[in-house]
Every structure is written in C-alpha cells, then in structure tokens.
Design a protein around this nucleic acid. Structure first.
Lengths: 141, 141
DNA sequence: TGCAATAATAGTAATACTTCCTATTATGTT
DNA sequence: AACATAATAGGAAGTATTACTATTATTGCA
C-alpha cells in the first residue's frame, strides 16, 4: 500500500478549511493557499481535496450552483443555500440524530451518512424581504 | 415577459423523466429522447432540464459522482447513493414532515425546501455483503 | 387559412471544472 | 548521506455544461 507522506501544501489546504466557515470551492482554496505557496498548482489542490474528503477529513458539499464546496466541519450538519445571495451557510441547531434511523426502519439496505441541503433565504436576505414588504404595506395601506 | 411556448422535445424529456425511476443524467436523457427525436441536440436537453427544474417540474439531484441527475417526482424525498454499485435510488418511507420546521425553529431565515442525500449500501449490495460475510464465518469459524 | 412575431431548436464553438501526465522535488527510512 | 517513492508544478487532455447563430416551430391574430 502506498503510505501517505506529509506535504506542506496539503497541510495549508486543511489549515485554511479549518479556519473558515465559508465553504470555499476548489478555486477559492487555490487562491488562498497561493498566498503562502505561490507555486502551488490547481491540480495539487484538487488532488488533496479529493484525498482529504476520501479519508474523511473534510466534507464535499453540492448546492446546485455547479461547483463543489468544501467544509472541514465533518460532523453531518445541515446547510442552507440562499436563493437570493447564493451564499452557502451552516445552519445552527442539530438535525435529529435519528434522522437516518427513521428512514432505515423501512429499508433493507445500509444507511451510513447523509447530506442535508436546505434551500430558501438566509437571515440577511429574509430581513431585506421583510423590509421591502413593510414598505409596500405603507404605500398601499 | 417571454411566454413559454410548447415544444415537442421538452414534452418528450418530461415524459421520459416521468416514466422512469432511474434518475438519469442529462446524457442519458439525451440518448433516450434521441430515440423519438434523432435530431435533438444536447444543448436542447440541457436548456430544458434547466427550465423544467427552475419552474419546479423536476428535481435536480447531486450525489457527488460529478454529474447531475434528474427526477420528475418533485415532492422532497430522500435518496440513497450506493457506494458500492454507484446507483442512485429513491428511499421508501417518508422523511418526517417536520424535518425543516425542527431546523427552522432555531433560524431567523426562511427554509423552503431541502434535498436529503443518503450514502451507504443499496439493498442489493447490502445482501451481497451479508453473503460474503457468511462465507467468511464458514471458513474461519 | 395565412402571416407576422418570436420562442425554441440543431449544430457547433466556447467555457468551465476537473483529472491526467511527466519530469522534478520533498519526505521518510536505513 | 543515499535510496525509494509520494507529492508536486505545470501543462495537456477530458467532461460536463453553456453560449452563439441561423433556421424552424409555435402562437396569436387578421
């Protein structure tokens, strides 16, 4: 078996992901890591993101915007993709831990993990919407 | 506003998606629709899949295998991506309808819909695994 | 029924995003 | 220090998807 060797680039990628809650794409990780390793290549970033997600160090998120996002908080937790500002954010509050077992009760296969992506409005965009509605009420009522 | 006009190709795409439970990719939809419309182009398939998913006629599913899958069963329901045979299947049994409200209780934004993707083994692959394990027990124990 | 307006299409070019390839460099071991 | 090899940089190649444009299909109306 090929043993995994340490690499500064991989450490920088993981360190960056652990330092942010912004769920960056590969491209954003690349731009960030380039600040400390100007010679790093996009291929290296992709190879390591794949390696880290395969060994469970990070999560791979898809929200329907075409590209993939990465998250170093590996415990299954829900995300929200805002349909207004297109930001991808962590949702506070745990999902019921028995989410999978409820489903598994009806199913003879094996459920090991899940990814829950919510769609709607983030707090900021929901606030804006409320303000706009308030104004409308002012003018018409 | 541009009004949407009828198109045979779009109808064929939707009809096919409604006739199957296999969650095909754009490429597979293309191959299928080509049987009735040999001249159809991949661009048309993509444009219509986007249109149909934007107007809520179909769902867009991502299971981490790189491409997108489409589903004409539009009610939010859970899916399973089998890590062994890589098939993407519907999970029976409803998710608790209060799944979103539980989360929304802690959140000031607005949650409108969700996509729940489970990972593990489908019934078929889970069965195979059990048989292999049984054999091992035979030989070693 | 025929005509005008325009949405949708086919076919192709262009654009992501991601992986693959190869010579070179970094890491870990003896 | 020397060896074995994992990992890298840089660029080429491969997919999945979108954009462009001349042509065709659909719709509303005379």
């Amino acid at each position: 078996m090929a043993t995994t060797k340490f690499s500064r680039q991989r450490e920088a990628i993981l360190r960056y992901l652990k330092s942010t809650t912004s769920h960056p794409t590969a491209e954003l990780v690349y731009n960030e890591v380039r600040k400390s390793y100007p010679q790093v290549s996009l291929g290296t970033v992709y190879r390591n993101l794949n390696l880290l997600s395969e060994n469970g160090s990070i999560l791979r998120l898809q929200c329907g915007d075409g590209s993939e996002h990465f998250d170093a908080t590996t415990a299954s937790h829900p995300h929200l993709f805002c349909r207004e500002c297109h930001s991808l954010i962590d949702l506070p509050g745990a999902v019921k831990p028995d989410l999978l077992s409820d489903i598994a009760a009806d199913y003879r296969g094996r459920l090991e993990s899940y990814s829950l992506m919510c769609f709607g409005l983030c707090e900021h965009c929901a606030d804006l919407k409320r303000k706009v509605n308030d104004k409308k009420e002012d003018s018409y009522g």
